[in-house]
Every structure is written in structure tokens, then in C-alpha cells.
Amino acid sequence: MRLKSSGFGYVFLQFMALSYYTQTTIQSGSIPNFKHHVSEQGRLSDRMSRRLTRTYQLYSRTSGKHVQVLGNRRINANGEDGDIHAKLVVETDTFGSQVRIRGAKAGYYICMNKRGKLIVRRKGHGRDCIFTEIVLENNYTALQNAKYKGWYMAFTRKGRPRKATETQQHQQEAHFMKRLPRGHLLTEQKHFEINPVSP
């Protein structure tokens, strides 16, 4: 029987090659670290992949109300349940937990400047407009800025944005809960999109 001309021979050669690769990988001690790979890939923006878009509200633990993006380019956490300005569109930026958040009504993206102040932009292409969702042990979510590590979206008891340079993950001001607007169903849309890369 000639290996080259038989299907069995082809499969056998593939198996032998895979076995050799596995043995040399284990012997060399270079076993792939998938956790590291996922972490690295989660930091990269992927504008070609299928994205997930969700619509919900962010309930602030301190103010007892919802984050809202107003038409006058202001952000606060004083929105009532079901308020049109408290409805947020959350777009996944990678296959990990990085997201872009924009007001459904105003259309502005929530971003953070270099002084730690929450601002809004019409286009949210920069890394300062990306937040990493961190699910905490108390089931609240903290939103850390992707560009400024250790800086979190946070609001005072009066619903005013707190300067991110003074925030930490364990503080209640940085804790949020995802909630559906009253009378609305969760909407998720998967779609392909190609966005121009910002300079």
C-alpha cells in the first residue's frame, strides 16, 4: 500500500506530525498560556469582528438613580427609571469585556479626558472612550477606563461625576447595576461593521 495515494496514509502522516509537535512543545516547556492570550487580545480593538450591541440603563449605587447623557453634552446620575436620556447603547469593542457607551437619545459617547473628567464625544473611536466592565463580588459592575488604568467612572450621591483620579474599584461611587428600562425588553444586535480607525 502506498501512503501517498491513500486517504489513510494522509491521516496517518497528519497524526504523526501533530504528535511530534505536541511532544516538542511539552519538552521545550512552552505550553501555550491561553489566559495570557485572552488578556492580550482583550486589550486590542477589533474593528472587523462581529459586535454585540445592548441597550440598558446604568443604576448608580450612590445616587440611587441612572446615568444619563443629556443633549447639552452633560453627564450625570440623576435619571429616573425609563427616562429617555438614561437609555444607553453599549457596544462591545473586543471579544472581551471592553465597551463603548453612548446615550441613545443624545448620541454622544461617554469618554474620559487626561484630567479624569467624564466628557462626551460625537465619535467614540479613541481608547479614552472605552471602558472595561469589571463584575465585582457584590454583583455590581465597575467601569475602568481603557486608556487610564485605575480610573473609574463614578458619581457622587448628588449624581455629579466624580473625578476619576480620586476613584478606586471598591468605592460605592464606582459601582453600577445594569437594568432594563421600565417596560422594555433586552435588545441585543449582532452585526458586522467597519469603522475608520481614528488617527
Rank of each mutant, 00 (worst) to 15 (best):
K190D: 05
F176T: 02
H191V: 03
K4M: 07
P32H: 09
G116D: 05
G103L: 04
S60I: 11
K123A: 07
L180Y: 00
N78G: 03
A154K: 03
E91M: 11
F131A: 07
F155P: 11
P199N: 13
Q169N: 08
G96F: 03
R47I: 14
Q168R: 15
M16V: 13
V197A: 14
L180Q: 01
L44I: 13
A146S: 15
T25E: 07
N76V: 06
L88H: 05
I84E: 11
G124Q: 05
I84W: 03
I75P: 03
I101Q: 10
Q168P: 02
I110F: 00
Y59A: 05
L136H: 03
C129L: 02
K190I: 03
L180H: 01
G150Y: 12
F176G: 00
H36S: 14
R54P: 00
D128W: 07
S5E: 14
R122S: 02
I101Y: 09
E91G: 04
M1W: 10
N139S: 14
D93I: 15
G96K: 02
G7A: 07
D83R: 07
C129S: 06
Y140R: 01
G103N: 06
F95D: 02
Q57K: 01
G29K: 13
F15T: 15
S30W: 05
R102P: 03
M153K: 05
T92F: 06
T53L: 09
Y108I: 00
L3D: 15
K158F: 06
F15N: 14
G82L: 05
T55F: 13
Q27K: 12
G82F: 09
D81W: 14
S19Q: 12
R2P: 14
D81A: 12
A106I: 05
L18S: 12
R121H: 08
G126Y: 04
G124R: 06
G9T: 00
A106L: 02
R162I: 11
E40H: 08
Y20A: 03
D83Q: 12
I101E: 06
L88P: 04
N113Y: 01
F34S: 08
Y148Q: 08
T62K: 08
V99R: 01
R102F: 04
I84G: 01
G82W: 04
P161C: 13
V135R: 12
T62A: 10
F192G: 08
Y152N: 11
Y21W: 06
V67H: 13
G159T: 04
R182I: 14
K123F: 10
R115H: 11
R160P: 00
L180D: 00
Y109Q: 00
T25S: 05
Y140L: 05
E40T: 05
K117M: 09
T165P: 05
Y140F: 13
V135P: 03
Q23N: 11
T165S: 15
G150D: 14
V38K: 01
G82Q: 14
K4F: 13
G71K: 06
T141D: 04
D83C: 09
